[in-house]
Amino acid sequence: MAEDKSNAEAYWKANLRLITGCMIVWALVSYGFAILLRPLLSGIPVGGTDLGFWFAQQGSILTFIGLIFFYAWKMNRLDKKFGLGE
């Protein structure tokens, strides 16, 4: 029972770590690159404008898609590793 509990706790901690990492990327591409840090990226040209504009209109969406699939794939592995999947 105690072992079950610590196993479950470890699973939840691993999940929280993974979420935190993904959330940092999520915030970085949208609030960072596309808005607040856009002036810093203005030197990198992309098709008649700059990298920040690309992140605002396309890059952030592509990153979001990648993030969700990465998270789903990682969680499937965690479910198996800790034996808590269905």
């Binding site: 979420i19 993904c22 959330m23 999520w26 949208s30 596309a34 504009f53 605002a56 209109q57 396309q58 952030s60 969406i61 979001f64 993030l67 969700i68 998270y71 789903a72 969680m75």
Partner: peptide, 23 residues
């Protein structure tokens, strides 16, 4: 550019759904 907010805002919520609520 100013209205890119709709593009990011209406898609970024799915990251929150996938990790924080849906499962």
């Amino acid at each position: 550019y100013a209205n890119s907010t709709f593009l990011m805002g209406w898609t970024g919520g799915y990251v929150l759904l996938a990790m924080l609520l849906a499962p």
